[in-house]
Amino acid sequence: MKKTFNVQFFYYELMNNVLNGFSMFFGIAFPMILSFIISIQIKSSVPQSMMKDTLTSVAIGFSLIIPLATGFIGYTANYATELESHIPDRLYLFGFSQTTLLVYKILAALVFLTSGLIIFAIFEYIALGIALPSLKGFLVMIVIYYVFSIIMLVFAHGISNLVRKFGLAYAITMVFYFGFMILSGMMGISVHALPNALQIVSKMLPTRYFVEDRILDLYKGLDYNLAPLLQSLLLWAAIAVLVLWISYYYHGRKKSESYK
């Protein structure tokens, strides 16, 4: 029978996220540990007057690891493993369509990701003493954050569904993951130090705009030009949907005569 929304399936997907050690460590513990280590260095080298802003800026940048690690790498690790074991195939045969599964998985991943973000924010506020956002800044950033996370989840789902092999899917997402990190200036190289061609590519990555100092203006509710960030989100949304569509095209079910 065709399945519609049920709480039990949502709980099942959520538990698959929560009990996935990879997402737990890399999505929640890792960004906190990393930002804490960096903050120690910052505290010894940045003037006191700039300390709060610098630490806030670092926290915003590292918060991106949560959707990238849980929503992209962690999701791929989980889903590609399931695909390799033909678990989703079995679920299709119980009436769960590919789209239904995708919606459940994204909802569960978003709830997990939200928990991660709340834990991260509390930790950063207490341990690093970051500034609180303005209401406008908080609302705009949270929307952008979720849009970016959904795009990454759809992209991860599409890649996994297309290649259906854990090793290959994981390798592809790792290339994108480190590509995003390096080209956004999150790995110690400033985007301005990149060759011109890579700087152009960098401008197409939403992550770049989270790492720039100007993101603090958005965070504080000051004037901020959202256009480049929105354009980069649109571009990656299109890429993610295209990859997903191709994966559905290759792995969809053929309808019988009566129900074409």
Binding site: M1, Q8, F9, Y12, M15, N16, I87, R90, F94, S256
Partner: peptide, 30 residues
């Protein structure tokens, strides 16, 4: 509808992250 056909395949795999009860409830929807 094809989706309304029940099928027991030769190989049937389920998540081993959660218990069998959670898997069953998810599939049965209650």
């Amino acid at each position: 509808l094809q989706e309304s056909i029940a099928i027991h395949m030769q190989q049937n795999e389920y998540s081993s992250i959660v218990s069998v009860k959670v898997v069953m409830e998810a599939i049965l929807g209650c």
